[in-house]
């Protein structure tokens, strides 16, 4: 019996390798943390001192070197919300169609290809498209609406792909069991498929929020401006935005106090994290436990 469990040379070799790879893979993962710590650390260290109630909630003054960033903060929130309002319904609907209804034919394949390509289009190209389509052709002017729609188009692939993947993660057997009872496709989607895919859809939303709130190029031509002395009154107004403001205060304004750009960046990141944690919390609440 004893000999049976004694390690052979092969065992030794395998065990050694097992330890080595575990260590290598683990330490590479640990390396990932460094950039995050470095970025967050620098931002907090250099930016935190300028953050105050006034910084967040008052208008910039004196050529933006003094005062606060409220118009930019509000602008970014508005841009993201309007973009979400446009892209989430559209993206989820498209993903449901592609995953649950579309036959596997050349037309569907072309659509899927188009989505992949859309994801690969550089944001400056989206910006020019948005300028042509929304600002000029649809006559929205440079406005929150035009900028948000541009952002929505840019992030549509993210929402579609995340949603489609999560729909497809729901086992086919569930659908068939449901169809077999006489449920229509839509009844099956509403009662079985969607409730089990909702966490994946929220993942798409999280990714979209992060991406849209940081983008600069697409909004620069379509609705965001360097400086506005008043707050936007509606979606047809122009707006300031944090990302553009960060670009301006870091590069365009001479004699800018050094801490301000760090402060703006810190606020931008905190905003993204806050919006994300909302959907992360929702996701955790919905996921609860394993479903199958």
């Amino acid at each position: 019996m004893k000999t049976m469990f004694e390690a052979t040379p092969i065992n030794h070799k395998n065990l050694g390798r097992q330890k080595l790879f575990r260590f290598l893979l683990g330490s590479m993962t640990a390396l990932l943390i460094f950039p995050v710590i470095l970025i967050m650390g620098t931002l907090i260290y250099k930016g935190a001192p300028v953050i105050s109630f006034d910084f967040l909630f008052s208008n910039p003054t004196n050529g933006m070197t003094e005062g606060g960033i409220f118009p930019a903060l509000l602008g970014t929130i508005l841009l993201v919300l309007v973009a979400l309002l446009a892209s989430v319904p559209l993206g989820v609907a498209a993903a449901i169609y592609l995953s649950e209804y579309a036959p596997d034919n050349w037309f569907t394949r072309i659509i899927n290809l188009a989505i992949i390509n859309l994801a690969g289009v550089p944001s400056i190209v989206h910006a020019l498209f948005g300028l042509g389509a929304f600002v000029i052709f649809f006559r929205f002017g440079t406005s929150i609406l035009a900028a948000s729609l541009t952002l929505a188009i840019m992030t549509l692939p993210v929402v579609i792909v995340a949603t489609r993947e999560s729909l497809q993660a729901v086992p086919m057997a569930f659908r068939e069991a449901c169809w077999n009872m006489g449920a229509t496709r839509w009844q099956t989607i509403r009662r079985i498929v969607l409730p089990n895919a909702i966490t994946g859809i929220l993942t798409g939303v999280i990714l979209e929020v992060s991406r849209t709130s940081g983008e600069t190029a697409p909004i620069m031509f379509t609705g965001a401006v360097f400086f506005l002395p008043f707050l936007p009154q509606g979606v047809f107004d122009q707006t300031m935005a944090l990302s553009l403001h960060l670009f301006v205060v870091s590069t365009q304004v001479p004699e800018m106090p050094e801490a301000v750009p760090y402060g703006v960046a810190l606020v931008l990141i905190a905003l993204v994290l806050m919006m994300n944690s909302l959907s992360i919390a929702l996701r955790m609440y919905l996921r609860g436990k394993k479903k199958w």
């Binding site: 069991a177 077999n180 006489g182």
Partner: peptide, 28 residues
């Protein structure tokens, strides 16, 4: 759909839907 709803089928691989036990049976 009307046809299928009049026919009950049970296949060898059991499928418990990711719903509560109650909702599974109340579904039809």
């Amino acid at each position: 759909y009307g046809l299928r709803s009049r026919i009950g089928v049970v296949f060898p691989l059991p499928v418990g839907l990711p719903l509560s036990v109650y909702d599974n049976v109340a579904l039809a």
